[in-house]
Design a protein around this nucleic acid. Structure first.
Lengths: 247, 247
DNA sequence: GCCAACGCTTGACTGAAGTCAAGAATGGGG
DNA sequence: CCCCATTCTTGACTTCAGTCAAGCGTTGGC
C-alpha cells in the first residue's frame, strides 16, 4: 500500500537473519526486489491458521504474536517475535499451510516475501534450502525449550527466566522495560493474567521491584538461580494446620 | 557390530519417510551405502544432549524417546518415535549439536546415517536441503501441537487425545494396546505416573475400560469429544459437601 | 519356592494455577 | 472534561496435579 524504501539500517537486519545470512548478495537482492515493505497496525492479522502459505515475513519493527485457537476458544501462544525474526518461512517453502495464526501486537514494519519468489530462487540458487534449514533449526530449539519450560517449571520460574533473557547484564542489578503488555506476556508464558500478577509478587522475595512497565532487579544472577531451581517449595510455615481436625 | 541387511520391507519404510521420499533413487542408495543397521537394546542411549551431531537415525522397529534433563534432575519428554520416524536430521545437516538426548525404550532396529554422508550428498544433490525441510516441517508441527496441548488441556484430556490417535477407527467401539509402558506414556503426556493412573480412572466415565495393557473404548467419537472439551468441569454432584461445615 | 525389584495403583495431603468477581488505574473518544 | 473500555491487581474459592507413603501383582534371580 505505501511506498516505503528499505534503508541501509534495515538491510543490515535482513542480512543478519539466519535464513538470509548464508545467501549470496544477488539472491538477497532478487528476493528483496519481489518483496514488499508493509506497515501493519496493532491488532491486525498477518495470516490465519490453515490458510495456504502465500508469503513469509521478516519483522523490522514492532511485535508479532503466533498462536493457535484451541477448541475451547482461548488461545495458546506459540511465540512472540521481534526485529530480525523470520516468520512462516517453512510452510512457504514446502508449499503447505500456515500451522498457526499471526497477529501484530505492537505496530509493526514488516518485509513480506511472496512464496512464489522463494520457489523460483530455490531453483536458481540451490543452497537456499540449507540456509533455511539453519533458520528452522533455531525455531525447533526454541519450541523444545518452551516444552521443557512448561513441563518442568512453575509460573514464577518461567517469569524469572523471561526477565533474565530480557536483561542487559549477566549479574548484578539492572532495570528492565517490559517489551509488551502483561496480558501478552502471560500468554507467552502459558498462564492467565491473574497468575502473572501473582508471579510478579512472588518474585519480590528474590529482589524484584515492579513499577508499571519497568522492573528493577536487585541481582540478575539471583533471579537466574531462582528460575532454575528445583520447583521451589520454599516458604513453608512449620506449625501450620488447616481447617478442622479429623473426627 | 552385527552384519545386518536392509530387506525390501525396510526399504519401503525408508523411502516413505518424509526426508527420503523427495530424493532420487541414487541419492538414497548413496546414503544407504554409508549407513549402518544397528540393533540397540532397551535402556541404551543413542546420543546425549549437547554432543556434536555425528549421525542421524531412522527408526525401523522399536521405540525411541527424546528428552531433556532439567536442572532439577527429572526429565522432560519431547517425543517418542516409532517405525518410519527420523531423528536428529537437522543438527546433523547444520553441523550443530544434539539439542536433546535419545534413549531406546523398546528394543530397536535403527538405520544410522553418518553426518559426513549428508554433507557430501548435499553438494552432489542440492535438492536435499528442501527434502529435509519437509521432514523438519513435520517436527515443527508436532512440537506446536504439543505446546498447545500442554497449555490448553488437562491430564485426562491429553490422555484421551493420545488414545484417539492410537485408535484404529474414527468412531464406534474398539480396543487399543498400549504401545509402551505407562511410565513412559506419563512422561510423553507431561505428567507423573500417579496422575496417569487417575487420568485412566476418570476416563471410565466416558466409556473406557482398562485391563493391564489393553484399553477398551466404548465409542472413540465420544472420547475425542471429551479430549476437545473446554476444560471438563463435568461430574459435579449437586448436593455434595466435603469435610466439615465451616463454623 | 522365596524374596527382591519393578511397575502400577490408591489414598491423603499440599501447592500451583484457573475461575469468578470486584475494584483501581490508565487512556482514548466524544 | 467526563465516560467508557481496557488493562492490571486483589481476594476468595475450586480444581488440577505433584508428593509422600503404603500396598498389590508380576517377574526374575538364586
Amino acid at each position: 500500500m505505501s511506498e516505503l524504501r528499505i534503508d541501509r539500517h534495515d538491510r543490515e537486519a535482513i542480512c543478519a537473519a539466519p535464513m538470509f545470512s548464508a545467501l549470496p548478495q544477488e539472491a538477497i537482492d532478487s528476493l528483496l526486489g519481489q518483496s514488499e515493505l508493509q506497515l501493519q497496525p496493532r491488532r491486525t492479522m498477518l495470516f490465519e491458521q490453515d490458510e495456504p502459505a502465500s508469503a513469509f515475513y521478516l519483522v523490522l519493527d514492532g511485535w508479532v504474536k503466533l498462536f493457535r485457537m484451541t477448541v475451547s476458544g482461548d488461545e495458546a501462544v506459540v511465540g512472540v517475535f521481534a526485529r530480525g525474526d523470520c516468520i512462516a518461512e517453512v510452510p512457504c517453502l514446502t508449499g503447505g499451510h500456515y500451522p498457526v495464526s499471526a497477529e501484530v501486537v505492537a505496530d509493526a514494519r514488516l518485509l513480506a516475501v511472496p512464496a512464489r519468489g522463494i520457489a523460483e530462487l530455490t531453483r536458481a540458487s540451490p543452497g537456499i534450502g540449507l540456509a533455511m534449514l539453519a533458520s528452522t533449526s533455531l525455531h525447533l530449539r526454541k519450541l523444545v525449550d518452551q516444552i521443557e519450560e512448561l513441563k518442568a517449571r512453575t509460573g514464577p520460574q518461567r517469569l524469572a527466566n523471561f526477565l533474565v533473557e530480557l536483561a542487559p547484564v549477566k549479574q548484578g542489578p539492572c532495570t528492565i522495560a517490559l517489551p509488551y503488555e502483561k496480558l501478552l506476556i502471560a500468554g507467552r508464558l502459558g498462564m492467565k493474567p491473574e497468575s502473572l500478577s501473582r508471579a510478579f509478587q512472588r518474585l519480590q522475595s528474590v529482589g524484584v521491584r515492579i513499577n508499571h512497565n519497568t522492573i528493577a532487579v536487585g541481582d540478575i544472577a539471583r533471579l537466574a538461580e531462582f528460575a532454575g531451581r528445583e520447583r521451589l517449595m520454599a516458604f513453608r510455615c512449620p506449625g501450620f494446620r488447616v481447617g478442622c481436625a479429623p473426627g
